[in-house]
Design a protein around this nucleic acid. Sequence first.
DNA 1: AGGCAAAGTCAACACACCGTCGACAATTGT
DNA 2: ACAATTGTCGACGGTGTGTTGACTTTGCCT
Lengths: 227, 227
Amino acid sequence: MTSRARTPEAGGSGDGTGSRTGRTRRFDDSARKGDRRREQLLETAERLLETHAPGELTIERVAEAAGVSRSSLYFYFQGKWEIVDQLIERASQQMFERDRTLEATSDLPSYLRAIVTAAAEGWRQHRVVFLAATERSAHADETTDRWRSTMGRFADAIARRIDAEPDHAAAVAALGGSRAAAEIVCWMVERNLFMHFSRPHRRAETDQLVGALAVAALRIIGVADRA
Amino acid sequence: MTSRARTPEAGGSGDGTGSRTGRTRRFDDSARKGDRRREQLLETAERLLETHAPGELTIERVAEAAGVSRSSLYFYFQGKWEIVDQLIERASQQMFERDRTLEATSDLPSYLRAIVTAAAEGWRQHRVVFLAATERSAHADETTDRWRSTMGRFADAIARRIDAEPDHAAAVAALGGSRAAAEIVCWMVERNLFMHFSRPHRRAETDQLVGALAVAALRIIGVADRA
DNA sequence: AGGCAAAGTCAACACACCGTCGACAATTGT
DNA sequence: ACAATTGTCGACGGTGTGTTGACTTTGCCT
């Protein structure tokens, strides 16, 4: 990587409002031209994902669809995958916010049920982005993988919630502890939702699957469900 | 696809011994030169996967490592992914054979435990191929995806086994039936093993995970486990 | 033995995409 | 108003892909 005078955002994990290059920003911040363009490029990319598989999403196509030259795009992003990463970041952010409100929910069963539902809702809304995310996490090494770390955060949240109710300590111990159990549950949900949403699906089928996954999650954690 | 005088194997789902081009084969079939080369190319590819990520596995590298020209390779395979597909086919074949012997095993808990162990064993032996398979199943559309259909066959086997023991009918009904339950279990196991084997891992950790997954599977199906 | 079709091989071409450089144009704070 | 910063682009060099057509080798047939 030859030292290069990159300017906007520096591609990091979305701080979004950080101090811009040590420069004071106008008060009524009518975003810089570059900010708007960056935004537009992301939107274009997401739109293109609706019709093209992530593998067919090329820098060239995004640039063309957005009406800029290919090289201009490199001013904003390191490459295709950085665009995808940012889309993932945005989409999962929404899920997290939903989760934060959920965490206060009454009992563990309701919480698990709610979180599975929220995950499915995320998939429904950002299907193409999540599909791309999954594809990406196959390539990427663990340290640079947004999707893995997103799931990790969910596992943390679930583990925390399990620990809050000591009743389940015994059941969860057989799985290697609350965190290990939470991780198993997370990937179970993720993989099954992926398989569901990567092919044609009807709403009723989605609901059916969500219900089943919630029950499965409960049983894994050791919560008796009355069907 | 311009009509092309392809000869060996025609790339199909491994019939392997079918009538070769309507020509009578020598009795002591000491494989044709092409058969040997084909074999050699597959071995070379698998060997290369040990050191190169599937994304870096290029036709060029395989050809070079095998000592043929790139264009010769196209005589045998349609492209990189056809090679990978055949490797997947071989590897999963072994798992199935193991499963066949397992299916006779005494009770459902033992069977599930055994099948998870067998899966992990498959991963241990063919790690790189399975990683590639997972990566591929993100790209591929379902109809052309070996890995998905491999998992489907496992789900079938498990579902059959569940149905054989009517005790669990009720528990499994809450998940949408035995087949749906089996599928959830399959993908749970697959995804968690993938996550485990895609980063550095110690044998003890693997065993730990296998145990946990077996317990989780049992609980999902509704079999009470005594820890 | 020798002829011949099929099997196998390759160099060369045409293409798609990627990432970078350097020169140029627009924007923006002061 | 003007200089630094930010944004834009054409052109280049690179890697990998997939195809074509002409060539050599193999192995069956008489």
